[in-house]
């Protein structure tokens, strides 16, 4: 795939009937705050009486996406939408973008620095984990602008 190309996954369902929506923001490079948005999402899902197994899966995708934003992006806007049938998470970052999405989605491929790897990140598991865990997953990226991840988890 050429630099700057975008790649879409399967078509995501519209969240027009969202009964709950909240925005969050993540600051790139802020390791101390890393995980705090995922934690807020977890608390909201609990308050909305979402099933524990679904919360457990939502935490995998939320934390992976949050860490990617902290590790690679300058900033990231997160939108949590909850409808009667699914939990939807969008992570839209301003950052370097991904030149080759196919490669980035390959388990084990990573552009992480040595410092990131020493902290236990950058094993090339993040994006594949998110795709495996979400019921629907899409990624779009523009080099030099940023990457948008959209993930949905169906409410049983």
């Amino acid at each position: 795939m050429p630099p700057g190309a975008t790649s879409k996954g399967i078509v995501l369902s519209e969240s027009v009937d969202a009964r709950f929506r909240k925005l969050f923001s993540i600051e790139g490079g802020n390791f101390q705050a890393a995980g705090s948005v995922s934690k807020q999402i977890k608390m909201i899902l609990k308050q909305l009486s979402i099933d524990n197994d679904l919360i457990w899966r939502a935490m995998i995708v939320a934390y992976e996406a949050e860490m990617n934003a902290v590790l690679y992006a300058r900033s990231c806007e997160v939108t949590l939408s909850v409808s009667t049938h699914c939990v939807s998470l969008q992570f839209k970052d301003r950052g370097p973008g991904i030149p080759d999405i196919g490669l980035a989605m390959t388990e084990g491929y990573s552009t992480a620095t040595r410092e990131m790897r020493e902290r236990g990140f950058g094993a090339g598991l993040g994006l594949p984990n998110m795709k495996k865990t979400a019921d629907r997953f899409s990624i779009e990226s523009v080099v030099g602008e940023g990457t948008t991840l959209q993930m949905e988890l169906d409410i049983p």
Binding site: A34, G35, S38, K39, G120
Partner: peptide, 15 residues
């Protein structure tokens, strides 16, 4: 784990 930095706490908390 042998990791000692603060991000391990978020992982334990979220899961």
């Amino acid at each position: 784990t042998i990791q000692v930095h603060e991000n391990i706490v978020a992982v334990a908390s979220l899961k």
